[in-house]
Simulated assay, not measured.
Amino acid sequence: MEVDLKSVITCPYCNFQKEEIMPSESCQFFYECDNCKKVLRPKEGDCCVFCSYGANVCPSVQSKSR
C-alpha cells in the first residue's frame, strides 16, 4: 500500500476546503486557512493538522497502519 501525500484539509471555522500536499518527512503543526486566515493547530491527541482536519491522515500515521 502506497502512502498518499494528497489530502483535502477543511477549515473548522469557515468550512473552506483546499487540496494540499502533506510533508512526507515531518508532521505539520500549523496551517493558515487561505479563506479566513485562522491558524489551525492539531486537536488534542492528533500529531498534525492533517490528522485533525484532513481527508487523509499524515504519511507517518498511514505507514504505521499498514
Score class of each variant (00 low, 15 high):
F16I: 05
C11D: 11
P23T: 11
R66H: 15
R66D: 14
C58I: 07
P23R: 09
K38R: 13
K37T: 11
P12E: 12
V49T: 10
L5K: 13
F29M: 05
D46A: 13
P23N: 13
C36H: 06
S60R: 01
C47D: 01
E44Q: 12
E2N: 15
L40R: 04
Y13E: 13
I21N: 08
S26Y: 13
K18T: 09
Y31F: 15
G54K: 04
M1G: 15
R41A: 15
C27V: 09
K6N: 14
K18D: 06
Q28P: 02
V8G: 04
E25Q: 01
F16A: 12
I21A: 08
P12F: 10
V3H: 01
C47V: 01
M1H: 14
A55V: 07
D34F: 09
T10S: 13
E32R: 11
F30W: 04
S52Y: 10
V39P: 00
V3A: 08
C33L: 00
M1Q: 14
A55Q: 06
E44Y: 08
P42K: 07
Q62K: 04
S7T: 14
C36N: 03
G54R: 02
R41T: 15
K38E: 15
F16H: 15
E44L: 09
C27Q: 01
T10R: 12
Q28K: 08
R66S: 15
E44C: 00
K18S: 07
C48Y: 04
C11H: 07
R41I: 15
L40H: 09
C11P: 08
Y53A: 09
E2Q: 14
L5G: 13
P23M: 09
K37I: 04
V49D: 08
S52W: 08
R66G: 14
F50T: 02
Q62N: 02
S7E: 06
C14P: 04
R41W: 12
Y13N: 14
T10A: 10
S65E: 13
C48R: 07
D46K: 14
K64I: 12
K6V: 10
F29G: 03
F16T: 06
N56I: 06
V39N: 03
S63N: 06
E32Q: 14
N35A: 10
F16D: 13
K64N: 14
V39L: 05
G45Y: 02
M22T: 02
V61E: 03
C27N: 03
Q17F: 04
I21R: 06
V3E: 02
V39R: 02
Q28H: 06
F29P: 00
P23W: 09
E25T: 05
E19T: 11
E19F: 01
L5I: 15
C48D: 10
L5N: 12
N15T: 14
P12V: 12
P59C: 13
C51P: 05
S7V: 07
N35V: 02
E20Y: 00
N15M: 11
V39H: 00
Y31N: 07
Y31A: 07
D46T: 08
I9F: 13
V8P: 00
M1N: 14
P42M: 11
